[in-house]
Design a protein around this nucleic acid. Structure first.
Lengths: 194, 194
DNA sequence: TTCGTCATGTAATGGGTTACATGATTAC
DNA sequence: GTAATCATGTAACCCATTACATGACGAA
């Protein structure tokens, strides 16, 4: 999850760890603030596996080159950029529409990078998510129906609020699906939309 | 978290693991379905530390006593009940109103067991949660204001839907707080309300 | 010159999941 | 008798967190 969010963000521009974390928590509405304890190790792993690389083209840089630390023991900013491999991996991930793609977190990340996603994939993901949320709704509704009288008013409130939220999400998704379909009908070209 | 949910559920009646899991996923609206891989080890830990105990008073039981497995290698249902220690621990936890009590999951569990919670504590938790959600809202709103024009329509939608959800939660909490205060004004006796 | 915030990292830990292994009970 | 579901458990793993350690840089 973290890794894909990083790939997605680096798609826009090269960034260093601290910057990535801020973007993660603010720019991408649904995405949470990962801690440095997971962010930096992730960056390292991704660098080692070739998905990202240190960007030393930072113009007129006062920044220490990443390797300088080996000599000086000092650390400078380390700006990362996507590699070809990283782009490819992200494209693969973005096109995945398996059942996992519809759980809360993954769906949020998917949506956050929908501008890098093909029309048909977008539609499939939105519909899959809607189906999943609808199933959740049914589960909640029947559970509520079966246990309504045994429940104290707080649990009842909790259930009811949950049900309302789920209903709102379904409506929201339906709207997104509608406009998506309308767009596709108007301009049936596939591929990402900027 | 799991442990407290278990304590809370056992407060109602003795149950075995499988049963607990179902209750966890259905009866308690917000609570998620924990896997057996976390549930059974938790039960064991709790038994070992004396918070719960095997309930062998299950009437006219066809169930194997828990120890029989030592002889036969067979396993029967294991029904657990709260011990005095367990009740005490749960009461302590239920009264905790530190900042952790307001994050999503913990708040849900707290609310699910509000009928075991003192009035004043209920109010403090509801208000704390509201404050936290309001802060979240401010964060989201300012992030949105600062980055609105850089964002594609999907991210914008995500933000907007998040903001709406948060707003609804604040309103919901405010209603709960109001009725809670009204109740308290009518009948200022402290202690749990059934 | 010191304080806040930017910036990078590691080690220990936590709290869960998945996959697996086993067996009892019920309904058909 | 066999399939579904009830029921208990373990081992390996995953993905994150907290707490800690370090240091650069700009502003008061």
């Amino acid at each position: 999850m973290l890794e894909f969010a990083i790939l997605g963000l680096l798609h826009e521009r090269p960034m260093h760890g601290y910057e990535l974390r801020k973007e993660l928590s603010t720019v991408c509405g649904g995405l949470r603030a990962f801690s440095y304890g997971s962010l930096y190790p992730a960056l390292r792993r991704m660098k080692d596996s070739g998905l990202i690389a240190v960007d030393d083209t930072v113009a007129a840089s006062k920044l220490l080159p990443a390797d300088a630390s080996a000599f000086t023991g000092k650390r400078g900013k380390v700006v990362y950029k996507l590699t070809a491999d990283g782009k490819e991996r992200f494209a693969e991930w973005v096109a995945e529409t398996g059942p996992d793609a519809y759980d809360d977190e993954r769906f949020g990340v998917h949506l956050a990078f929908f501008s890098h996603t093909a029309c048909d994939v977008r539609l499939r993901i939105l519909e899959g998510r809607r189906r999943k949320v609808e199933e959740q709704r049914e589960g909640l509704a029947t559970a509520l129906a079966r246990t309504r009288e045994r429940l104290d008013r707080y649990t009842l409130e909790l259930h009811q609020h949950g049900l309302d939220s789920v209903n709102r999400e379904v409506r929201w998704l339906s709207e997104l699906i509608d406009t998506e379909r309308a767009d596709q009908a108007r301009d049936p070209a596939p591929g990402p939309r900027p």
